[in-house]
């Protein structure tokens, strides 16, 4: 059997799934012409991706933005005995993580898809040192949890620090489009807008030369779901007896991990490209009792 006649699997069409999810999560196109954001009742549903809810056509809620809102309002809510703890969003995030770990990063997240597209621009490429991947945990703990909770105004409200100071997805999906379609917002442009725009420009430059740098070093959503990779229902596995350490999977991996060293690494976005690229049938995955192993594609030599 050769790679040519091997039946194509969903994992081989992943960019189409990513494009479909990107459009599906931002499907309310009429908003772009009305100059407002979608305000339907379904928008309280959290989406499994870093997708800004202020994108004019966004259909759902960004879980990281929603979580910060709860942390930012927690002290005020406690002071007035309002029972709003963010359990809906926390439960949603943990449920997705328990089921599939970081898989939505590889298949659903529009911002991850954008990074993969920009990386296709042919230029010299840079690898990201592994130590930088730990920075995303610091972002999760400080910007999403600690600062919104600890630094509050006179009413007890904290800010959404990650959205305000860092999130380039918000600038790209909401900041720029809203300035284009809502003229009344333009006079409000000031330092913060230029700060976020500058940060976006820097990130886009990084996307050109490195693979998914935002996901790997900054994204708090990926940091959280990555913690579940080892214990989720969806599992990756590497057969040590079949693996030849040829390193093809490492070279093809969009987050540059060596899956043969740690099959369920918290860095893995479970795009399954390694399963397709392994010619020795060494990499497999399992979900709900169903195991998928790519066959050994080496052509037997004629005797």
């Amino acid at each position: 059997m050769t790679g040519k006649n091997f039946p194509r699997k969903p994992r081989d069409k992943r960019p189409w799934y990513q494009a479909a999810f990107a459009l599906g999560l931002n499907a309310w196109i009429p908003s772009w012409f009305k100059g407002e954001i979608f305000q339907g009742g379904i928008k309280g549903i959290c989406v499994p991706a870093l997708n800004c809810y202020s994108c004019p056509s966004a259909m759902g809620a960004c879980p990281i933005g929603a979580m910060q809102t709860f942390f930012g309002g927690l002290r005020f809510n406690l002071s007035v005995a309002e029972k709003k703890f963010g359990l809906y969003v926390a439960g949603f995030l943990a449920a997705v993580g328990s089921a599939v770990g970081r898989m939505p990063c590889g298949w659903v997240c529009p911002f991850g898809f954008i990074q993969e597209l920009i990386y296709k621009i042919p230029t010299p490429k840079l690898r990201i040192p592994h130590f930088m991947t730990y920075f995303r945990y610091a972002v999760l703990v400080t910007m999403v949890v600690a600062l919104p909770l600890l630094i509050v105004d006179q009413f007890g409200y904290g800010e959404t620090w990650f959205c305000k100071w860092i999130c380039p997805a918000g600038t790209l999906e909401a900041g720029i489009p809203l300035m284009l379609i809502k003229a009344d917002l333009r006079p409000l442009i000031g330092f913060m807008y230029y700060w976020k725009l500058g940060l976006l420009v820097l990130f886009v430059g990084w996307f050109v030369v490195s693979q998914r740098p935002f996901c790997r070093t900054v994204c708090p959503l990926g940091a959280f779901w990555g913690l579940f990779n080892k214990g989720s229902l969806f599992r990756m596995a590497v057969d040590d007896e079949k693996c030849t350490l040829c390193d093809k999977c490492h070279k093809d991996c969009p987050v540059e991990i060596k899956i043969y060293e740690q099959a369920n690494s918290p860095d893995c976005v479970r795009c399954l490209r390694c399963v397709s690229s392994c010619k020795f049938g060494a990499i497999s995955y399992e979900f709900l009792g169903k195991k998928e192993v790519a066959p050994d594609l080496r052509v037997p030599k004629a005797s």
């Binding site: 928008k43 202020s54 929603a66 709003k84 807008y193």
Partner: peptide, 23 residues
């Protein structure tokens, strides 16, 4: 059950000034 869906919805249907850089 605690009504947190409503809280998320209210946040999501309002233009997030922090997210777009004018907050």
């Amino acid at each position: 059950l605690l009504g947190e869906y409503r809280t998320v919805l209210e946040k999501a249907i309002t233009v997030c000034l922090d997210c777009i850089g004018i907050g």
